[in-house]
């Protein structure tokens, strides 16, 4: 029983990282129908920003986290402006390839400028393990869970309660109609990228603390997993992305703890395929049928 709880805690910690990342995928997909392949690399940028500011500017955790969110938001906006905006009316597969290009650019640019080696993330918060009825929980895990949940609640509030959030929802339903009622499409899309990228930046700093190691290619696999999480939850749906993230995190930990760690990714993809076959648009996605 304790191992179940132990794995639950581990799964939730990992899942909250996936969830934070999945939110960015789902928001961007919702608004411009683009699989933003470079999103995982924004998370890498966040981790590196944390690494440098903590090591060389001696930022504390909160400051590193917040500044990483701001920097990543800016990076997201810049990338959208230069790489995706010119392609807004191009075939969607073209935009996808551009996103892959941006991803390569960020990964290899970082490797070129700062070296491809793995480095240790500074222990800005000293890890302390608590023993709760036999379950080992670290302060870092609690921090990750709490921060991730806070950010998700904050995001939900922004989307539901603010003017910009309403604009985002309007543009994702019908951009032309949104424009007609006076919504500034470009600004709304920039804002969406900023929001999503800041979540990824936060996830980057958190994962650095949790796994204690970062490298320029660190965004690739979690990026794909988080996208899978977004699809499982129903891409375009914000609660779906959170749910999908936690599901994938839990699943991975469960398979691993059962001794099949070599198959943990296979299990994720198998569940993905099964969910899509039962619910072709994911858990919270709407399956719109074409009207003839």
């Amino acid at each position: 029983m304790t191992t179940v709880f132990q794995q639950l805690i581990n799964g939730l910690s990992l899942g909250s990282i996936y969830a934070l990342l999945a939110l960015g995928y789902t928001m961007v997909y919702g608004i411009i129908k683009l699989i933003n392949f470079a999103h995982g690399d924004i998370y890498m940028l966040g981790a590196f920003w944390g690494y440098y500011t903590i090591n060389f500017w001696h930022f504390n955790f909160i400051f590193a986290l917040l500044s990483a969110m701001v920097v990543c938001a800016a990076a997201g906006v810049v990338i959208e402006y230069f790489a995706y905006r010119p392609l807004r009316h191009a075939p969607r597969i073209t935009a996808l390839i551009t996103a892959i290009g941006v991803s390569y650019f960020l990964e290899n640019g970082m490797s070129y400028l700062y070296g491809a080696d793995t480095r240790n993330f500074p222990q800005v918060i000293k890890q302390v393990n608590y023993d709760l009825w036999g379950v080992r929980v670290s302060n870092i895990q609690i921090l990750i869970l709490v921060t991730a949940c806070l950010l998700m609640v904050l995001l939900q509030l922004i989307i539901k309660k603010t003017k910009m959030g309403r604009a985002m929802r309007a543009v994702s339903v019908d951009p032309d109609a949104a424009e007609l009622v006076g919504i500034n499409i470009n600004r709304t899309i920039s804002f969406t990228f900023a929001l999503g990228s800041s979540m990824a930046g936060a996830a980057g700093v958190l994962i650095g603390l949790y796994y204690n190691s970062i490298d320029p290619l660190m965004g690739m696999t979690p990026g794909i997993k988080a996208f899978v999480a977004a699809v499982v939850g129903g891409i375009g749906s914000v609660p779906g992305a959170s749910l999908g993230g936690f599901l994938i995190g839990l699943l991975e930990t469960a398979v691993q703890s059962l001794g099949f760690s070599a198959y943990k990714d296979a299990a994720v993809y198998l569940v993905l395929i099964i969910i899509l076959l039962v619910l072709p648009a994911g858990i919270f996605g709407k399956n719109v049928k074409e009207k003839v």
Binding site: L87, T94, I100, G101, Y104, N108, G109, S111, Y112
Partner: peptide, 22 residues
């Protein structure tokens, strides 16, 4: 060397932006 993939990525992005249909 290491610059190769950076150039490749840039070329890819530029071709897509200026020739979206390939």
């Amino acid at each position: 060397g290491a610059l190769r993939m950076v150039i490749y990525a840039l070329v890819l992005i530029l071709i897509m932006i200026f020739k979206p249909s390939g």
